[in-house]
Design a binder for these strands. Structure first.
Length: 420
DNA sequence: TCTGGGGTCCTAGGACCC
DNA sequence: TCTGGGGTCCTAGGACCC
């Protein structure tokens, strides 16, 4: 048996934790560069705002109606997420942190000593009390069904945010009410194809022959079908499973056309990616870079490309990663285009405890590399002004716009909320 | 003028091997 | 006119997730 604990409009709710005056008010959170809406409260939804609405199109009408908006504040969200996950770990022995605002709980054994509905209610209330965040809980014999349960908890207020689908009759009843595109694993493309063969609800999907699905769709959807019938196919993921790739990419705050500026941005992303890599205790062998123009500007000539370099040996040294990123960038850069986005991707990871040196690897790099990186990471961890490489640039005019960001209430001493 | 970022998994097709 | 069979590995791209 699984439980899915899911936060209600996570980013918007985070903004409310330290702003009780925003209770029952419309709140939206914007993507990087204040580009579009990525989270919205119930009240904002009622005003007709939708996920992914471009901010510049809705700003004036929305604020006139008394709506509040925030630039994304990932430091705050990550910290609140960590508090919620720690709380869940105390309530259940085995959890899988699925995303910043969701976790699956393994309820094996719990149903022997406690009513599951009560357990769900206890989770919800404890999290509210300890962190201030509203969550809902879906309980079911498979992960896919627990997602369905969570959907029920979201759209039917009578459930008070907790739905237990351990009984097959209840599963059937709810599946019949859920549109097929809401099923976990059914995206836009599959939805369209399912509609063409007359599949409209989750229950319709649960009833198709799995062989037919395997032959006409794919094995992933066949698993989904079996999960909807209550047959567990997807287990709790092992959290130790390490990342396979690290991506850092950003849209620029304005168009960029010269190589120097691109180099600066790519070096900055490379340094961030390298720091992430070290946090995972890994080294990487490949560094890829991609750049692209703005596809929304149809009047502009379009260009996109990516390039990859293989390092001499696996490394997590920022200097190596920056150097190779710049090399890849120079190989793919073409002048005469307005670039809007660049990114870096690290792949093929190795444990940082095992260092296989190459005969031709420069000695001075291997000698103090780990010590130097360690020191930089330590300094940058402690809320002091960060240490960075000159290649990352000083003014960073290309860097993203966040004009209406809330304070970092829980992660910066200067931003602590004041009580007067 | 202004349209996000970071991931995973699967599959088809090409290169290569015997 | 005629040109095998079976396998592995790698990569790019598609689809999905939050």
């Amino acid at each position: 048996m699984f439980a899915l604990v899911d936060c209600n409009s996570f980013y918007a709710s985070c903004e409310r934790v330290f702003r009780p005056d925003l209770k029952n008010k419309p709140v939206v959170v914007l993507s990087n560069n204040d580009g579009c809406v990525v989270a919205l409260s119930k009240e904002a939804k009622k005003l007709g705002i939708k996920m992914c609405d471009p901010w510049y199109q809705i700003e004036s009408a929305y604020t006139k109606k008394g709506g509040y908006a925030f630039s994304s504040n990932y430091e705050l969200y990550a910290d609140i997420s960590a508090r919620i996950m720690t709380t869940l770990e105390r309530l259940s022995p085995n959890i899988e942190i699925y995303s910043i605002d969701e976790a699956f709980l393994d309820l094996t054994g719990v149903n022997n000593c406690q009513n599951l509905q009560d357990f769900g209610m206890q989770c919800k209330e404890t999290i509210k009390q300890w962190t201030g965040m509203p969550v809902r809980v879906g309980i079911a014999p498979t992960k896919t069904l627990s997602k369905i349960a969570s959907y029920g908890a979201k759209y039917y207020p009578a459930t008070q945010g907790v739905v237990d689908l351990s009984k097959p009759e209840r599963q059937k009843k709810l599946l019949n009410l859920v549109p097929v595109q809401e099923v976990w694993g059914v995206g836009r493309k599959i939805h369209k194809r399912l509609n063409q063969i007359g599949i409209r609800t989750a229950l319709d999907l649960a009833m198709i022959d799995t062989k037919y699905v395997r032959n006409n769709f794919n094995i992933v959807l066949a698993k989904t079908v079996r999960e909807l019938r209550g047959e567990p196919c997807i287990g709790l993921e092992d959290q130790s499973s390490a990342k396979k790739q690290i991506v850092v990419s950003r849209t620029f705050s304005k168009k960029v056309d010269d190589l120097r500026t691109l180099e600066e941005a790519v070096s900055d992303y490379a340094a961030r990616a390298a720091a992430k890599l070290r946090r995972e205790n890994r080294r990487c062998l490949y560094v890829s870079v991609f750049i692209r123009t703005n596809p929304f500007r149809t009047q502009d000539r379009q260009y996109r490309n990516s390039g990859t370099t293989r390092l001499i040996a696996p490394t997590s040294d920022t200097r190596d990663i920056i150097q190779n990123a710049k090399k890849s960038l120079r190989a793919i850069y073409r002048s005469g285009f307005n670039y809007i986005k660049a990114g870096i991707l690290l792949s093929d990871f190795y444990d940082d405890q095992i260092q296989q040196y190459d005969f031709f690897y420069p000695k001075e790099r291997t000698l103090h590399s780990d010590q130097l990186m360690n020191t930089i990471d330590k300094i940058n961890k402690k809320g002091l002004p960060p240490v960075y490489f000159l290649a990352q640039g000083i003014k960073r005019k290309w860097s993203m716009k966040r004009e209406i960001q809330s304070p970092r209430y829980t992660t910066s001493w200067n931003d602590l909320p004041k009580v007067s």
